[in-house]
Design a protein around this nucleic acid. Sequence first.
RNA 1: GGAUGAUUAGCUCAGUUGGUUAGAGUGCUACGUUGACAUCGUAGAGGUCACUGGUUCGAGUCCAGUAUCGUCCACCA
Length: 832
Amino acid sequence: MLEKKYDHKLVEESKYSKWLEAGYFKSGVRGSEPFCIVIPPPNVTGRLHLGHAWDTTLQDIIIRYKRMDGFDALWVPGMDHAGIATQAKVDGKLREEGLEPRSMDREDWLKHAWSWKEEYAKNIREQWGVMGHSLDYSKERFTLDEGLSKAVSTIFMKLYERGLIYRGERIINWDPAAKTALSNEEVIYKEVKGNLYHIKYYFENSDEYITIATTRPETIFGDVGVAVNPDDERYKNIVGKKVLVPFINRVVPIVADDYVEADFGTGMLKVTPAHDQNDFEVGRRHNLENLLCINDDGAMNDLAADFSGMDRFECREKLVEMIKDKHLEKIEEITHSIGHSERSNAIVEPFLSKQWFVKMDHLAQQVLDFQNTEDKVNFVPKRFEKTLTQWMENVHDWCISRQLWWGHRIPAWYKGDDVVVSVECPGEGYVQDEDVLDTWFSSALWPYSTLGWPDNLDEKYFPNNCLVTGYDIIFFWVSRMIFTSLEFTEKKPFNDVLIHGLIRDKQGRKMSKSLGNGVDPMDVIEEYGTDSLRFFLATSSAPGQDLRYDEEKVAATWNFINKIWNASRFVLLEESEEKELSISDKWILHKMNLTIEKVRKHMEKYEFNIVGTELNNFIWNDFCDWYIELSKVERNNKILRLVLTNILKMLHPFMPYVTEEIYQKLDSDTESIMISEYPKKTKEFAFPKEYLELEEIKDVIVKIRNIKSELEIPKGFGIINNLENSEIINKNKEIFEKLLKCEMVNESNLDKCEVTFGRGSVVVCYEAEEDNNKIEKLVQEKEKLEQSISKREKLLANEKYVANAPKEIVEMDREKLKIEKQKLADIIKEIK
RNA sequence: GGAUGAUUAGCUCAGUUGGUUAGAGUGCUACGUUGACAUCGUAGAGGUCACUGGUUCGAGUCCAGUAUCGUCCACCA
């Protein structure tokens, strides 16, 4: 017997370790056809947040469903070393301990980083366990483990051999705090208030000058020219002349270049090729020198003369102050967007630097071509395929080297000008590149590197069947997995991509540390249990839509589980026995069949919100409100148990714990619900005739309850049992009496009210109280009916409608019109 | 500037290829402790589907445009 009240803590306490010990999560044991999902690896930087919980819950639902449905299900766990993010955290921790990380020995530092990793990996595994995730831990991987490192260097070398990777001097985004290059995707642009300084550049040996507007006066030390638009009439005559850079008096030429917009600022641009992407290109077109004037830590270098060693922003202020009289024309306040490092939040310095890049044109084109084939990767919802192609059409080369310690060391060796790409040292005198690869480089190989590529890829599980992730990383991650996979395995990495949105707080704001509105899934679980949280996360939004976290909805889910719990208590009151099927039994079995069919259909399409609604309706409305009530008239324990069992199975992927608990109570001989068979629709349970008949009974009961409430009929009313009543009433006397709490009588002198339904009518007799509103109510209903009738008559008079609309619909309208007319006649009679 | 999503009941959201009187949860109102559940039951009120046109016998759904909010990308010397 179950406890009187559902207690999530008690129910969820020890089940996970039992499943784990029994080996239910292991792949290659049950089922034949493979079904594989590889988890998006969380960063080993901290605790899992609600977004992770959502993402992984969806995966666990899919995996549990497939496992029960006879597949050999494999869900691969794993984590990401998260280069810059983890390095920043480890450095922070070391500094707290009074150590200066950058002056440590690289190997020593790495030891600290690995112990950090072990600690956080343990936390993450614990959280997965609390959330009930059925991951096959025997296959767990880490992006920096031996096998994955081999995959990374193999890909690097192959890309190099194929000419898809190169080393070059380019303007990259430099993080002066972390002292590393960043990819464009790691730069976050924010609107900031700033100044536009209008600065005078004098001609050589002259008092005449031109005025240039710049937001970054401190970069004048890197100035090598001034550019104007070739079509700008104002400046045509000065192109080719030379001006002096303020303060340092460097002589630089005025050049004409299309990039310059005549309308912006003064229509003149100072050219600083080493600190701006566009200037770099202008400089290249006009053979200008590249002069770096800022160091890798954001301080000015020797070119800045007196300002050498000063921070770039301090230099800006001081310099403007010093040139104020002679060179500053005015300062204009503007709002512009400034790039910040995603991790350190430092203002990014565009920086000329030698880095490794992946050449993107061929790889991106390959994705575009592949997505035009029948074999393409299917996104759910489909519209995200457009997001992918849009990205692929607008890619730029990918900067993959990072000046960090935590990551895959670049397999490149240098000796003088000689560059050799190789894992092993190619010979004496060669020195390995100090840098590591962008974290996303290893993540890009995740679907196959985790399955043994390159040495022994487990082809049974590849391509993966499904990937689940948020739309925010379609480019960073999904697209990169697709192009590396197409290029190196010659297969797509996965068949389906299920995309979900972002999780937001109750006001619809993004959850973030700075707002402090984040919710720890473990806190929610403490209060409402894993099952409630999972069901809420999986069923509260449509695929691809954002989700607002709403505690009230989690609480509502708890109530739903409590309802299931109590229904189960009712079922468990008596033992099972053989019995002939009643109309109610046949009705619920047929309805169950219909539900199984719908649930399966929507499970296959990852439409868990619809599955949730279907199950909620079936369980709460059909099973609890009707079938259990009908069971109080005539009880069939075998069917009660059978339907409940199927309900539990369909719910199990969503609520693994409570379903296991009740399942074990229903049948103590069974091993576990998680390896039981997922319900299938069967002909044996198809009873369309009885189903319709009971639907009609329900309809009559609801109509009588309706009238009862409307006319304020007190308890203990009667239904007249005579030949004029439909057969349906007489045949199911007990059902009506029990569910309506009324009596079937032969005749009565009391007030009467006729209730019509599909195939007949029934007379309710009752002791009427004075009701002055009765006539008013009837008149109201009459008006409503008349309106509806006139609308329908008009519709049916429309020849085009009758000709074009489907026959069933026209027929239905005719039928309805007939019923409405009958009702109207009844009401008119009653009013009189 | 480009792309994309949202706009439906007080609130949070569903609404499949156009087709009954547009649904759910929550909240609200009235009544009710009948042999699992008051964390419950029965019934009810509540919507000009953002706006303007168009296509159609028929539009929440399709097309064009407008407005408001959000997200991503690019750019801003």
